[in-house]
């Protein structure tokens, strides 16, 4: 697998985590059962936070010029 494909896969994982994290955190605002609320908010924050960290990692790689599209043909 080339690095470009790997980055694309990571980006997709971040997007999926973002969607599920958003949905869970969104749903948690309407849950009144303490246990379910706690579980949902923990998973939501975890997924959304992880999605953000993955994005920050990708942005840092791009910013530092490690991204393969910025590298020369050699």
């Amino acid at each position: 697998m080339t690095e470009t494909h790997e980055m694309s896969r990571i980006a997709k994982i971040a997007l999926v985590m973002n969607v599920f994290g958003t949905m869970l955190l969104g749903v948690s605002m309407f849950i009144n059962h303490p246990l379910i609320f706690m579980l949902v908010i923990m998973m939501g924050v975890g997924l959304l936070g992880s999605a953000f960290l993955i994005w920050a990692y990708m942005a840092a790689r791009t910013g530092l010029g490690i991204h393969p599209t910025r590298q020369g043909p050699g």
Partner: peptide, 12 residues
């Protein structure tokens, strides 16, 4: 991926 988790996540 960058601003939404930070701003919306904090607000939620």
């Amino acid at each position: 991926l960058g601003m939404f988790p930070l701003l919306w996540g904090s607000a939620a």
